[in-house]
Design a protein around this nucleic acid. Structure first.
Lengths: 212, 212
DNA sequence: TGTAATATTTACCAGACGGTAAAAAATTTC
DNA sequence: GAAATTTTTTACCGTCTGGTAAATATTACA
């Protein structure tokens, strides 16, 4: 086997480690911007500072690269949801979850966009993983339902609640261009995430009905 | 001029009208599923029931097709926002807006995904139109602010309110695969839009704090 | 330091893709 | 029903793209 990654040998050279990281980082840049088919191996090679054949010496194919990115991504992506604590205080657990997801959009926008691209195009590469996702959501939905039954949360559909948190938070990464265009240069600083968090806190706790 | 669309002549043949519609419809299918670069003219030709050269007889290029789709789309897309009535009852205006957007996700998911693809990939084709969008949003944000000042709505950032409505409603079109995977076959029927509407009504009016 | 293993470059290829030219077929017009 | 026009097909072309083979350069290690 000529390819270092496909070899069974566990030990990686310094150069291998360095270059694999450079490639995956560059690939995340490119894939998240243009989608899988819109990206070329040449682009990834260039942004990673190496030639195409050199890149393909580390990864067998374009497909192999995105698979690894997606694997890494999904794990990280579900972490905030896993952290919801059934024994915590319901409203603040929801708020914390929302905040963690918002922070992910702020700190890992490329990952968010990569995921969005995948799902948008029919999730050809994540069909299996969606089953794990369902399992986890079912679990957390049950927790939320128990909170509602205990009168700690308003009566609502837990699944759509989770969807709405995903949607509102990921929006700031996935639709960043639009958000910035609408907010204008003044309000488009990093502070927009704080503004978003404040708004979403308000929304999820009290809604929009004026408080007396 | 060989291309019927580029000709100045206003009158279109029956065949032209029929085929242009077939092509735009097929292109919407393909583009919304694979994105611009992920789609091929051959795919569009096949789904439209004609050969590639025949298709290119009606539209000069792949680019020309998506431009027309996007133009048609943006108009339709902003319509619900335009319909927000400054003289209406604030809370119900917000709710109506949300419902109209949700209906658009239900009835025009391909358009939603096409738009999402565009924005996600940096909006290379809609930069100009985003300026009109900003103008319209500024206008409606001012309306919302006036509602808040009149005590008819809870104090909140109008821009992020609008973002949240976009996000939560478009989510059901753009992330349809994920939504269906999570809800499972039982709850994935058309009724999921009603469930979503009910949840969002609750969220936007009262939030999640348990009512006493 | 010499040698084996690793890393990089050069030169290339087969297929896919967007698009064109020109002839053939179908339709409309008179 | 013949001529003019529109539509469709056939046969291409140049470019881009993912990927490979083999030679060369570099590094690790005894």
């Amino acid at each position: 086997m000529s390819n270092p990654r496909s070899a069974k040998t566990k030990k990686r050279t310094r150069i291998q480690q360095k270059n694999e990281i450079k490639i995956l980082n560059g690939a995340l840049d490119i894939f998240s911007q243009h989608g899988f088919r819109g990206s070329t191996v040449d682009q990834i090679a260039e942004i990673s500072g190496m030639s195409k054949p050199n890149l393909l010496y580390y990864f067998n194919s374009k497909e192999a690269i995105i698979r690894i990115l997606i694997d890494q991504l999904l794990d990280k992506w579900l972490d905030p949801l896993r952290k919801i604590d059934p024994d915590g205080e319901p409203l603040s657990e929801i708020q914390s979850y929302m905040r963690r997801k918002l922070e992910m959009s702020r700190d890992f926008p490329r990952e968010s966009r990569l995921f969005a691209n995948e799902i948008l195009q029919g999730a050809p590469r994540v069909h299996d993983e969606l089953k794990d996702l369902k399992k986890l959501v079912d679990e957390k939905a049950a927790v939320i339902t128990s909170w509602i039954k205990a009168g700690k949360l308003a009566k609502c559909d837990p699944y759509h609640l989770i969807f709405s948190i995903w949607a509102t938070t990921q929006h700031y990464a996935d639709f960043d261009v639009q958000v910035k265009a609408v907010l204008g240069p003044k309000q488009s600083g990093p502070g927009r995430f704080e503004d978003a968090a404040r708004f979403l806190d308000q929304l999820y706790v009290n809604g929009l009905k004026p408080q007396k």
